[in-house]
Amino acid sequence: MRIMIANKKMNLMCSMNFLGLLISILLVCASCSFNYTISEEEEKNKILELHQKQREYHFNKMAEEFASQLSSTHISVNRGEINMPSKESNIKRFSSYFNSVEFEKWDDVNPPIVRFSDDYKMAYAIVNKEVIVKYSNENEELIREKTEFSWVAIYRKYDEGWKIDCVASTNKPSVSENMNI
């Protein structure tokens, strides 16, 4: 009889220890997971801030900073071609472009449209820009060129913040005028 009572006490203690352990694990798990809400307005402002910095990078010929907004797996869709340029080739390409022109205008025609995935880990921005540049042609004549660009930039949220994963771009035909006339 004493053995049966001892076994029952032992079983009860084991059950209580197991229950205590289970409650402890649940409390630890509950404290580790947090119910964190994402503000769409805050995330949209972060995307728009990056968009605004792009204007500064164009006017101030900041190719490295511009390229730093692109992810390491960035894809470019432009002029019927799909490319996955490296950061170094992006810096070289942007530097060449920025140094070959003077930006007169790089302004939104309409405010960018920004949308998010349900989990706020991806976003896209639809942009419409009027761009006016001046440059010297092969005859050293000063040319003023005006066009309108539209693109979709797909952003992904990384640990260090939003980066552009893909850009698909198009533009209207340019209108050029020789300023030496």
Rank of each mutant, 00 (worst) to 15 (best):
N60D: 13
V133I: 15
I38L: 05
Q69I: 11
S117F: 02
F98V: 07
V127E: 11
I91E: 06
D118Y: 06
Y124F: 15
Y57E: 06
F116A: 07
V127L: 09
V114E: 05
K44D: 02
E65Q: 14
K87P: 03
E88D: 13
N78M: 12
E64N: 11
N90G: 03
K134V: 07
V131C: 09
Y124R: 02
K61E: 11
A63L: 03
Q69T: 13
Q69G: 13
E104K: 15
S72L: 08
D119R: 05
K87S: 09
S68Q: 08
E43R: 07
V127Q: 09
F116V: 07
S96A: 14
I91W: 08
H58D: 05
M62V: 01
I126M: 11
E81T: 10
I132D: 01
D119L: 05
N90T: 01
K87Y: 11
Y36C: 09
K105N: 05
I126S: 09
D118W: 00
K44P: 04
Q54N: 09
P85L: 05
E56S: 11
R115V: 14
N45C: 04
H51N: 14
Y36T: 12
R79L: 13
S117V: 03
S89C: 01
Y97A: 12
D107K: 08
I47V: 10
P85Q: 03
P85S: 06
K92Y: 12
E64W: 00
M84T: 15
E42Q: 10
M84V: 09
V131P: 01
V133P: 04
E49Q: 12
V131Y: 03
N99K: 10
N99R: 05
I132L: 08
S71C: 04
V114W: 06
F59T: 01
K44Q: 13
I47C: 03
K129A: 01
V131D: 00
T37G: 07
N45I: 02
T73W: 00
S100L: 04
N83C: 00
A67V: 09
